[in-house]
């Protein structure tokens, strides 16, 4: 067993590359989907029907399909539509689309949970349009939903493992490659699991911080 571990760890450049890819694709997806979900949230909350109906349909559709199906769809069907993406880009797009839907729903839910009088207070003091969102609605919505967004980020990190099926060289792909070359499934998987666990612990710690902030500043 020790020998097998040494063999697996001897492949550290592959593991390191896989881990770095997982971290990078996850971090980029979280950042991009946070930006996009804020835009979608504002568009949906603004109540313009031409925006609201298609955007809500997008959000509901994304939340109704398994992530793996979305990855396959993006990988096999986008080329049919003339869109050619590298597998890495394809994975990123899938993660961002899927996660944006969940983030948007979290923001929408948090805002619906708050009092409509919060917006009234903003309007009464002279806020309108985008400034009402940027100064009054978004800050408290983001603070209140911070812990849920953090938990969703953990789900995203775990979902990124599915990207191995379209040959993105992320952590699960690397681990699987090593175990199939050396026939050391237990040791290779243990290393992989440990790295996911450490990554999620870090995010978990951030979620706990967000929890404390939300408790004080998320609602009056």
């Amino acid at each position: 067993m020790i020998d097998n571990f040494l063999i697996v760890l001897g492949e550290w450049p592959t593991i390191a590359w896989g881990f770095a890819t997982t971290v990078w694709v996850s971090a980029l997806s979280i950042a991009l989907s946070l930006i996009l979900s804020i835009a979608l949230f504002v568009a949906i909350a603004s109540g313009n029907r031409w925006l609201t109906i298609p955007l809500r349909a997008f959000v509901d559709l994304m939340r109704a399909i398994p992530f793996l199906m979305l990855v396959f769809l993006a990988y096999y069907c986008l080329p049919l539509a003339g869109v050619r993406l590298s597998s890495w880009t394809c994975g990123l797009v899938s993660l961002v689309a899927y996660n944006t839907a969940y983030f948007t729903e979290i923001l929408r839910g948090a805002w619906a949970h708050m009092s409509a009088e919060q917006a009234d207070a903003g309007r009464a003091f002279g806020y309108a349009g985008l400034r009402l969102y940027s100064r009054i609605i978004l800050p408290q919505t983001l603070i209140a939903s911070g812990p849920m967004l953090g938990n969703q980020a953990i789900t995203l990190i775990k979902n990124s493992a599915f990207l191995m099926v379209i040959t993105v060289h992320e952590l699960t792909f690397a681990v699987n490659q090593i175990q199939s070359i050396y026939f050391t499934p237990l040791e290779a998987l243990l290393v992989g699991v440990t790295l996911y666990w450490v990554l999620c612990l870090v995010v978990e710690a951030a979620v706990r911080r967000l929890d404390r902030i939300a408790a004080v500043r998320g609602s009056a």
């Binding site: 009092s115 207070a121 309007r123 003091f125 002279g126 309108a128 009054i136 800050p139 408290q140």
Partner: peptide, 25 residues
């Protein structure tokens, strides 16, 4: 329009039954 109205609304100072303070500030 809402934007012009917003400028007028500042000339009223409103106090609500449920306070409606902004919790993030």
């Amino acid at each position: 329009r809402e934007r012009e109205l917003a400028r007028q609304r500042v000339r009223f100072g409103m106090v609500f039954q449920h306070f409606n303070l902004w919790p993030h500030l």
